[in-house]
Write a protein that binds this DNA or RNA. Structure first.
Lengths: 145, 145
DNA sequence: TATTGTTATACTCTATAACTATA
DNA sequence: TATAGTTATAGAGTATAACAATA
């Protein structure tokens, strides 16, 4: 069923439209992941930041934002939160920039995050019928920007 | 590349994770659609509601909410907006329930919405490489609930 | 008793504008 | 001049709790 068929079908409703289905799938996925991360008191975006700085050290706030498509302005309160939770430290690079680095506690939490996220991603893929599975990520990446 | 490979690859970053890619793709899609609907002064959820009541007449607010997974509490201000814009009317069914019906202006706007959304959905699918395309909607629907 | 509609409230993600200080 | 970090503010989607009125 292509979009035009879906729009005029009485059966499928909006769920026959890829855009609408994409939104609903993403919402369900976010709710699931948010629930799993709530047990370690983190938001989805918190965990994304921690995962990024766990792989690339000495990144500035702006660089993290570019990688994750988080606005500079929104990085500040996010990092404030992570700093309050003792998960990261801001270390001066020069008098303008600062590196965002994991604390010991942050490093420990990152191990948990990786475990939670990996299990989450595997559960997610497991719900997709096998014949469609290998096509899912390539399709998403084509839409990502 | 499966999730576990992606988690420990230095190259792909988080975009190798289907869940993260799903979130990014949905955000990009929503921004695109929101932009197209802004020209007719509607939000994405406004257009979804109008599309639904354009196909099934005499639906109550609660019923629309169930179909679109919009909380009852969030339907009220949404319908207030649509009513202020003269796109819908609330008509009493009994002393408790009311049907949400399209006005003449709502019916005219719906024609535009259908055109905009159909073009949007086609553009969206066109960005996905052909070999992945037929698998996209089935995969999303498997994740939808 | 369960449901409808509503109000109030809050959280998360995202977005823009504007300011400062420094590269 | 451009960039880094920040503050303030707003919009949009989603969520829960609670209430009155009615089925």
């Amino acid at each position: 069923m292509n979009p035009s068929e879906a729009m005029f079908s009485k059966n499928a409703g909006l769920t026959g439209l890829p855009g609408y289905a994409l939104r609903r799938a993403a919402n369900a996925m976010m709710a699931d992941l948010a629930g799993r991360l709530a047990s370690i008191d983190l938001r989805i975006s918190d965990s994304a930041v921690l995962q990024v700085i766990g792989e690339r050290t000495d990144m500035t706030s702006s660089e993290i934002g570019k990688v994750l498509e988080i606005q500079r302005a929104n990085m500040a309160p996010l990092l404030d939160r992570l700093e309050s939770a003792q998960l990261i430290r801001r270390e001066p690079i020069d008098r303008k920039s600062q590196a965002v680095v994991l604390t010991q506690h942050g490093l420990e939490q990152l191990a948990t995050i990786r475990r939670v996220v990996l299990e989450f991603e595997e559960d997610l893929m497991a719900r997709i019928p096998a014949r469609h599975r290998p096509h899912f990520l390539p399709a998403l990446r084509a839409l990502m920007d």
